[in-house]
Nucleic acid binder design. Structure first.
Length: 568
DNA sequence: ATCGTAGGCGCC
DNA sequence: AAAGGGCGCCTACGAT
C-alpha cells in the first residue's frame, strides 16, 4: 500500500469509508480515492502513521470507526457541530449544508420526489454531489456517496469544506477558542456514543430474569395468560376497596375518581402526592406498590429484555447532544433504569466497574461560568453548600434548595423565599441566570458557556390569549435559566468522559455508561485501582481544560464495584 | 388504523 | 423542601 498518504498531527483530514468500497480522504485541496478490500484496516494504518484530526460528516463514518477500534481521540463531526451552532435536535445533512451556505430550507430537494417538470432545470449532472442551486443532491446523501472510492473522496472533500465553514462561524461567537474546543470535545463524545452503542452495558441476564419474575410474575405463555397475570396484579388494589370493585388502574381519570370516592380529593394522582398520604392508608400503599410493579412489568419486563439485551449486554442508541441544552440521550432504558434494577448491571468475569459521579456539579458549573467571586469562593470548598448556608444565615438544606431553585426557576416555597438573600450574596451569578430567563421570556435563543445555541420555541396556541402567553413566557424563562446550567454541565461532563475514554485505552477500560453526571467504566479487575485513580484525576484534567474559572473545585465520588447498585 | 397529546413515572 | 428543568417510555384517548 505504497500509495497511502501520511499527514501531520495538526492536519485536518476528512474521511469517508464504506466496507467493500474503500476510503475517501481529503486534505486542503487534495483528494485520495483508495480502493481497498479492507477500508478500515487501511484507515487504521494511516492513523497509526500520522494521527491527524479526522473530519467526517456523521455517524455513517464514526460508527464504522467505532466498530474497528481505531484509537482515534481527535475528530470533527460535522453533524454534531451543526447542532452546537444552530441548536435543535435533528441535523439532516441537507439542512447542515444549506445552513452553511445560506440556502433557503424550503428549496431543499426531497428524495423520491418526481417533479418531472423541474428536473431539467434543477438536476444538472447527477454525477456531481451539488445541484446547480447549491443544495446537496438527495441521492448523494442517501447512498451515492458510498458507491465508489472516488465518490467517497468527493464526499469527504465536502465534509472538509463544511467543517471549514463551521470553523468560521464558531469564530464569530463571543469566545471563539472556547467554542472551537467545544466543537472538538462534542465530536469526540459522539464517537464515544458510537462505541457505547457498540459495546452495550454488561448485564447479568439470569439475575434480570429473576428480578423481573419477582415483579411481573412468570413469563406469559400466551396473551390470555398475560391477562391473568395482569388481573392478579390489579387485584391487590381492588381488594382494598370496600365494597371490592374493579377499575382501569391505567386510566388516571378513573384512578382520580376512585380516590375521590374514597375521600382523597386530589388535583392529580402523582406519586409524590400519594406518597404523603401513604402512612396508615392500605389503599394508597397498594396503589403505589402496584405502580412500581406495573412499571417493571411493562417498561422493564420480558419485552424489554428480549428487545434490548443480547449476549449479556444492554444496547441502546446513544446521542451525544440530543437534549435541548446539549445533554446526552440514550434509549432502551439506559438513562432511567429503576434503582432496584441496577443490581443486574454486573461486571463480566475478571472485570470490575469503576463508578464515579460528579459532586454538586450544577452549582459548581454556575460558579465557573459566572465567575461570581463569592460563589467561586464557596466552590473552592469540598461542600459548596456550607459556606452558602453560612452566608445566607440558614440551614445547609435550605441553602441547597435555594441554590437549586434559583437554577431551576422555582417560584414558590422555601427556595423562592431565600432568593433575595442569594441575589444579595451572589449578585453576578444570579444576574446571569436572570438575564438568561429574560432572554427566554422574550423568545430569544440563549448560548451556553461553551457556545451552544439553545433554541427557544414559539407556541402557536397562544394566539391572543394573554394568560396563555404569560405562562408560555414563564416556562421559557425557566427553561432558558436552566439550560445555561444544564448545558454547561453537559459540556464539562463530556470533556471528562472523553478524557476517561482516552486514558482508559491503555488500561483496557471502556466507558459503558454516561448518565449526566455519572460514569460507569468497565475494566479488567487487576487494573481497577489504576482506573479509579485515572477517573478521579480525569476530573481535574477536564476542569483544567474546560473551566473558565480555574479556582473552582470539581469533585467526584469514585468507587470500585462489581454491580452498579453497590455504590453510593 | 395511525397519529399526536396528556398524564404518569423512571432517572439525572 | 417543594413539586421547578431535562430526557425516554408506558397507557389511554381523541382527532385524523
Amino acid at each position: 500500500m505504497g500509495l497511502t498518504p501520511t499527514f501531520d498531527r495538526d492536519d485536518l483530514v476528512a474521511v469517508a469509508v464504506h466496507p467493500g468500497i474503500g476510503v475517501g480522504l481529503a486534505h486542503r485541496d487534495q483528494q485520495w480515492a483508495l480502493a481497498t478490500a479492507d477500508p478500515l484496516a487501511t484507515l487504521a494504518e494511516i492513523h497509526a502513521a500520522s494521527s491527524p484530526r479526522w473530519v467526517w460528516w456523521d455517524r455513517h463514518t464514526s460508527s464504522r470507526i467505532a466498530e474497528t477500534e481505531i484509537p482515534i481521540d481527535r475528530c470533527w463531526d460535522v453533524s454534531v457541530v451543526h447542532r452546537l451552532l444552530f441548536g435543535g435536535w435533528k441535523s439532516p445533512l441537507s439542512e447542515v449544508w444549506a445552513a452553511l451556505h445560506d440556502l433557503p430550507l424550503d428549496t431543499i430537494p426531497q428524495m423520491g420526489q418526481l417533479d418531472l417538470l423541474a428536473m431539467p432545470d434543477h438536476d444538472g449532472d447527477p454525477d456531481l454531489p451539488l445541484q446547480p442551486d447549491g443544495h446537496l443532491r438527495p441521492e448523494w446523501i442517501d447512498a451515492r456517496w458510498r458507491s465508489s472510492p472516488q465518490t467517497l473522496a468527493t464526499w469527504s472533500s465536502l465534509a472538509l469544506r463544511a467543517a471549514s465553514l463551521q470553523d468560521d462561524l464558531l469564530g464569530d461567537l463571543p469566545d471563539p477558542q472556547r467554542a472551537r474546543s467545544t466543537a472538538r470535545s462534542e465530536s469526540a463524545a459522539e464517537l464515544l456514543c458510537a462505541e457505547m452503542a457498540r459495546d452495550g452495558l454488561p448485564i447479568n441476564t439470569d439475575e434480570a430474569l429473576r428480578l423481573i419474575g419477582r415483579s411481573a410474575g412468570v413469563r406469559p405463555r400466551s396473551v390470555s395468560h398475560e391477562d391473568t397475570i395482569r388481573a392478579e396484579r390489579d387485584g391487590h388494589v381492588f381488594d382494598q376497596l370496600s365494597p371490592r370493585r374493579e377499575l382501569n388502574l391505567r386510566n388516571p381519570r378513573e384512578v382520580k375518581a376512585m380516590l375521590r370516592s374514597q375521600g382523597f380529593d386530589l388535583p392529580d394522582t402523582r406519586r409524590w402526592r400519594l406518597e404523603a398520604l401513604r402512612d396508615g392508608e392500605p389503599l394508597i400503599d397498594a396503589l403505589l406498590t402496584w405502580r412500581k410493579a406495573e412499571r417493571i412489568a411493562t417498561t422493564y419486563g420480558y419485552g424489554w429484555l428480549d428487545e434490548n439485551v443480547s449476549d449479556g449486554r444492554l444496547r441502546g442508541d446513544w446521542s451525544s447532544s440530543d437534549g435541548a441544552a446539549g445533554r446526552m440521550t440514550a434509549s432502551a432504558g439506559l438513562h432511567n433504569l429503576p434503582a432496584e434494577m441496577r443490581t443486574v448491571v454486573e461486571a463480566e468475569p475478571d472485570h470490575l466497574f469503576v463508578r464515579a459521579d460528579l459532586g454538586q456539579i450544577e452549582p459548581r458549573v454556575l460558579a465557573a461560568v459566572s465567575a461570581d467571586r463569592a460563589l467561586v469562593g464557596a466552590a473552592e470548598q469540598p461542600d459548596l453548600y456550607l459556606p452558602v448556608a453560612k452566608r445566607l444565615g440558614v440551614e445547609r438544606e435550605i441553602a441547597k434548595v435555594a441554590v437549586l431553585g434559583a437554577m431551576y426557576g422555582a417560584t414558590t416555597g422555601e427556595s423562592a423565599h431565600a432568593l433575595a438573600g442569594l441575589r444579595k450574596s451572589y449578585p453576578t451569578a444570579m444576574k446571569m441566570l436572570e438575564d438568561a430567563a429574560e432572554q427566554g421570556k422574550l423568545g430569544h435563543d440563549v448560548f451556553t458557556s461553551g457556545g451552544r445555541r439553545v433554541r427557544m420555541w414559539t407556541d402557536p396556541s397562544v394566539h391572543g390569549d394573554l394568560d396563555r402567553a404569560i405562562s408560555v413566557a414563564a416556562a421559557r424563562g425557566r427553561f432558558a435559566r436552566n439550560a445555561l446550567i444544564q448545558g454547561a454541565a453537559a459540556e464539562f461532563f463530556k470533556v471528562w468522559a472523553i478524557t476517561v475514554r482516552r486514558h482508559g485505552r491503555s488500561l483496557g477500560a471502556r466507558v459503558v455508561l454516561c448518565l449526566h453526571d455519572e460514569l460507569l467504566v468497565h475494566c479488567p479487575a487487576r487494573n481497577a485501582a489504576a482506573v479509579a485513580d485515572m477517573v478521579d484525576r480525569g476530573v481535574s484534567e477536564a476542569a483544567h481544560y474546560w473551566s473558565p474559572t480555574p479556582s473552582v473545585k470539581f469533585v467526584a465520588d469514585v468507587s470500585i464495584v462489581q454491580r452498579w447498585s453497590e455504590a453510593k
